[in-house]
């Protein structure tokens, strides 16, 4: 019993990390209708920037975290301005392909700047496990739970109550109409990329601490896709729940099947997702659109 509970707690903690990454994905989709396949690249870039500031430059770790978030925000704005601004109003498929281009480019940039060998972030948290509900969990996971809780609370309130949050929802629904009622679609695009990049950087710092900082961190963007789809593409709470389900499923898969099938945890989410999508094609929290003709 306690073993299962322990797996569950660890699964939820890992899931919290996934849900943070999924959040950035949902943010961009919710605001701009862009299915951003480069979300993982933003995460990877965030982790490397943190590495650069804290190790290469030698800033105190907490200063470098804050600076990383600022830089990530700026990078989000910059990427939107340079690569996506011209695509406003284009088909969603074309913009999706742009994000594929971005993914390839950013991976190349990271490889040129930092090479193929992975780096480690400074160990700012003790490696001594702490006890949550009878399960021994590394402090970093506890921290990620807290970070996830804060980020989600902020964004649920953000979309519901702030004017830019509402503007983002309107833009996703129909860019032209949003523009006609005085919403600056450009600003919405810029903001959503900036915020998504920021959340990705938070995810990057956490993942970089748990694992290490390497170029293949950008695969996290694809790893959380099952969580995003499971939660429904445009649902913020859905991203949280999807992320946690993903974490738990993956952890249990590794714990109980991993000894026979090495690495099975990497594909289990996809297998489950495929089966699930065939039953609930729009995710658990997604909106079913009635097609008109």
């Amino acid at each position: 019993m306690s073993v299962i509970l322990e797996h569950l707690v660890i699964g939820i903690a890992v899931g919290a990390v996934y849900s943070i990454v999924a959040l950035g994905f949902v943010l961009i989709y919710k605001a701009t209708g862009v299915f951003n396949l480069a979300q993982g690249s933003l995460l990877c870039l965030g982790a490397y920037i943190c590495y650069f500031l804290s190790i290469t430059v030698g800033l105190p770790f907490y200063v470098s975290i804050i600076l990383t978030l600022v830089v990530a925000f700026a990078i989000g704005l910059l990427i939107e301005f340079v690569f996506l601004r011209r695509m406003i109003g284009q088909s969603h498929l074309a913009i999706l392909m742009i994000t594929i281009g971005l993914y390839l480019m950013l991976r190349g940039v990271v490889l040129i700047a930092w090479g193929v060998y992975s780096k480690s972030l400074p160990s700012y948290l003790s490696a001594e496990p702490i006890n949550i509900l009878g399960a021994n969990v590394l402090p970093i996971f506890a921290l990620s739970l807290v970070a996830a809780a804060i980020l989600f609370a902020v964004f649920i309130l953000f979309f519901r109550y702030t004017s830019i949050g509402v503007a983002m929802r309107a833009t996703q629904d129909n860019q032209q109409v949003a523009q006609s009622v005085g919403i600056s679609v450009k600003r919405v695009f810029g903001m959503s990329w900036a915020i998504a990049s920021l959340t990705a950087a938070v995810g990057g710092i956490i993942v970089g601490t748990i694992l290490s900082v390497g170029y293949s961190l950008d695969d996290f963007g694809f790893k959380v896709l099952p969580a995003v789809i499971l939660g429904g593409l445009e649902s913020v709470p859905g991203a949280l729940i999807g992320g946690i389900i993903l974490g738990v499923v993956e952890h249990f898969g590794a714990a109980y099947l991993g000894s026979w099938l090495i690495g099975i945890e990497d594909v289990i989410p996809y297998v489950i997702l495929l089966v699930l999508l065939l039953i609930v094609p729009y995710g658990i929290f997604g909106l079913k659109r009635i097609e008109r003709i």
């Binding site: 690569f83 074309a94 392909m97 742009i98 281009g101 390839l104 480019m105 950013l106 940039v109 490889l111």
Partner: peptide, 23 residues
């Protein structure tokens, strides 16, 4: 050794340029 990463950057950029200017 720069070939692979540089090619990624160029290829990504070319895709974006085509989508933007000659879809």
């Amino acid at each position: 050794s720069l070939l692979a990463p540089l090619m990624l950057v160029i290829f990504g950029l070319v895709i974006i340029l085509f989508l933007t200017f000659e879809p």
